[in-house]
Design a binder for these strands. Structure first.
Lengths: 133, 133
DNA sequence: ATTGATAGTGATAATCATTATCATTTAGAA
DNA sequence: TTCTAAATGATAATGATTATCACTATCAAT
């Protein structure tokens, strides 16, 4: 990973993501910033979200329609609707248990997955090698 | 959801998925079946995986590169590498705890998400309405 | 403050997983 | 058997994400 330099755009993107409670897509962030940063490019939003993710600063929530992002990596109780693709925050019974079940939820749960993000051993070693050049 | 009819193709797809331990993509399943089912179409694989998912028979693992599928919905300890996109099965310390941490893992974990799949209240009611027609 | 190396940006073209379409075939209840 | 809805194969379309490239900004070293 190359060293990060600060940029107005990255600061704005991170600030926008952290100041809102939904789980916006790259495009939603882009349009939210368009007024204050008219020259901002959508590609820049995608690039920066990817970098921030790789540095563990934000969490990507892979979704069928378009990936969503979470600027508060501590909250991890989401459910995604297989039909409309919406992301919903859930309150959990027996919080802390893998098989905890969402309470007061009118929908229907058909499955769940605990997914870790990071770097596998091989890729980690490769990037370390690259750093030390 | 319309009533399911049996088909050679769907049976083959489900059998292939359930008989292997990796987490293949739609395309990987397609190529694995191509020999025995030369006329199989990639679109059919996508269609059937989507149906099987909607019926809770298989689990989709949304991934940046291409979604992967799991035919054994009971195993849910995965990690995805942010670089190579690979899915790895993990052994978990304190299994059952949300904050369980993978052991004997040489890579680096930067985040995790517990994701539920299913139908939100709105979509569930809509599909019930449709069923009763 | 100037310079040089490298990271970042904006614009846009390219990629590629997934879905839609449609004519034809098949499953299964009547 | 016959009818209706579902399934298929082929292929075009979609759309999120990435690559490219010329130019600009950052920042450590001088």
């Amino acid at each position: 990973m190359p060293a990060l330099k600060t940029s107005k755009q990255r600061q704005a993107i991170l600030h926008e993501l952290c100041s809102r409670c939904d789980h916006p897509t790259a495009e939603q962030i882009y349009f939210s910033l368009k007024d204050q940063h008219p020259s901002l490019s959508l590609a820049t939003v995608y690039r920066n979200l990817k970098q921030l993710e790789e540095n563990g600063i934000v969490v990507r929530i892979p979704c069928p329609e378009a990936d969503r992002f979470d600027g508060k990596p501590k909250e991890h109780y989401h459910m995604t609707c297989l039909k409309c693709g919406g992301i919903i925050d859930l309150e959990i019974e027996n919080a802390g248990q893998i098989d905890a079940f969402p309470k007061a939820f009118g929908g229907k749960i058909t499955g769940h997955t605990l997914m870790y993000f990071g770097y596998c051993e091989k890729c980690l070693k490769e990037s370390e090698k690259t750093e030390n050049r």
